[in-house]
Design a protein around this nucleic acid. Structure first.
Lengths: 265, 265
DNA sequence: TATACAGCTTCCAGTTAGGGCAAAGTCAAG
DNA sequence: CTTGACTTTGCCCTAACTGGAAGCTGTATA
């Protein structure tokens, strides 16, 4: 039998932790003195302790380890390790991706750009299909604001309730200020009717732009760079969500827009 | 100004978290109503929030982020990100190493070997130099026990106090049962004298073997495999530390031995 | 045998970065 | 005025421990 200190030194696990493991029932000492309350461990328990340490390293939680120890089913354990291994793989991939972002940021800072000033955090998201009431037309960017007026009028005439912010979809590959195929719309609850359709872009990457609509380009650039860097391709027309915009009496510097690109690998 | 809910939706950070950040002084709302206690955020604070999210992703703790926000020193931030990047790199390397171990374990289990039965957790450690009183000789393994007797006699004659367990060092490249160059010793406090020398193996990997001395081979094999797998080479004679052994009246199944290999890349 | 001291015990509190839930107060639309 | 969505504070909870205090035990030494 070993005292908790001896067991600790051999197993490289602190006495504190050993007491904790006893408390939660993960590894109870082989014998506890009735008089003194001293814990004594069997040497054979070192094996259990080593397995615990190893599984912990593999990313198992303590309750998970407890069930593994209790079952003693090795084939099942192999499967569980495989699952953890795949989880770890995903983690590593994610971390490698973060490393690229870090390098990107470092270089931006070293080029003298202020990371706080144009800080687009590109994220991916699975966009749920939404029903939109929309108008699509080839037009000049100058007629853009007018389209929203038409849209609002149409909404009112039909008695529709918007259930989301305004949005616009850019159907042209290349953006042309004078004549672009733009669809402006808004999310609604009903799913049938004239000018009503379902928008289901699927997997998207997006970034949030704060400020006037003049400098969207930086955000678009950031998104396009990200898409290229991550090895995705654009799988549909990009769209903008006017989360906070001109319909209220808000300063242009306070506008909030989310820019989305549907993507696939 | 945005309510906490609006700010939350745009920044993709939960209201709870925003309140928490306000509480710890990381990001306080631009305005708090005196009547209702409602928090209102400036749109410009979204930038700060995005930076916080990003640095969090990079592995910064919240206090670290707070100092970054407070200082506004971008050059310094670049350095800090670089440090975190290296930290992440080390983490990734460690995780890749763990992945190899996992695969190894899975295969062991699938070959029907019991992971609990021969579970050597190989670790690396920088072994501090220690003074040992030792005897070195070419001998048969059968004379091994006798050597410890001689060693004990020598200790007693010199009036030396052991400050660690017995150990033995295997100076031959290839282990030969009949005639091996073995040094047996024990750690002592004094650093000068006949048969006293300093053992400074430096970086070692080691594993703990529990049980009789008969099946050390599995442990040695595990260590050698590990060394090969990790791309290390052996840089000195291996040694064994008899953490719990035959000097007490202990069953062979209770012996505890640590086996060390000095290594370098 | 007395004592010193290392080692052991329990109990309580704290760590990170928030999540859950409840009761009560507030805002804006109809 | 009411309704319903939103927000507030407050309290407890998480995982896997670590730290510290106060007191008890085991063993080596004088």
């Amino acid at each position: 039998m070993l005292t908790i200190g001896e067991f600790s030194k051999i197993s490289k696990v602190s006495p504190k932790t050993l007491r904790y493991y006893g408390e939660i029932g993960l590894l109870k000492p082989g014998f506890v003195s009735k008089d003194s309350g001293y814990r004594y461990y069997e040497v054979s328990q070192l094996r259990d302790m080593l397995l615990i340490s190893r599984l912990k390293q593999y990313g198992f939680s303590l309750p998970e380890i407890a069930t593994v120890l209790a079952s003693g089913d090795n084939q099942h354990l192999a499967e569980l390790i495989r699952v953890k291994k795949e989880e770890l793989l995903r983690q590593i991939q994610n971390q490698q991706h973060i490393q690229l972002q870090m390098e990107h940021d470092i270089q931006r800072i070293e080029r003298g750009e202020n990371i706080m000033q144009s800080n687009y955090l590109v994220k991916t998201v699975q966009v749920e299909p939404k029903c939109i009431y929309s108008l699509r037309r080839k037009m000049s960017v100058r007629d853009f604001g007018e389209m929203f007026g038409t849209l609002c009028a149409g909404l009112e005439k039909k008695g529709l309730n918007p259930t989301g912010p305004f949005l616009s979809i850019y159907h042209d590959e290349e953006f042309n200020r004078e004549c672009t195929d733009i669809e402006v719309g808004i999310e609604v609850a009903v799913d049938k009717g004239e000018h009503i359709r379902t928008l289901s872009p699927g997997l998207c990457c997006f970034a949030t732009h704060v400020g006037s609509y003049d400098d969207f380009t930086a955000c678009y650039t950031a998104l396009m760079e990200w898409i290229e860097q991550e090895g995705y391709t654009v799988s549909g027309p990009p769209f903008e969500l006017y989360v906070k915009g001109c319909e209220e009496n808000v300063q242009p510097s306070e506008y909030v827009t989310e820019i989305y690109f549907p993507i696939r690998k």
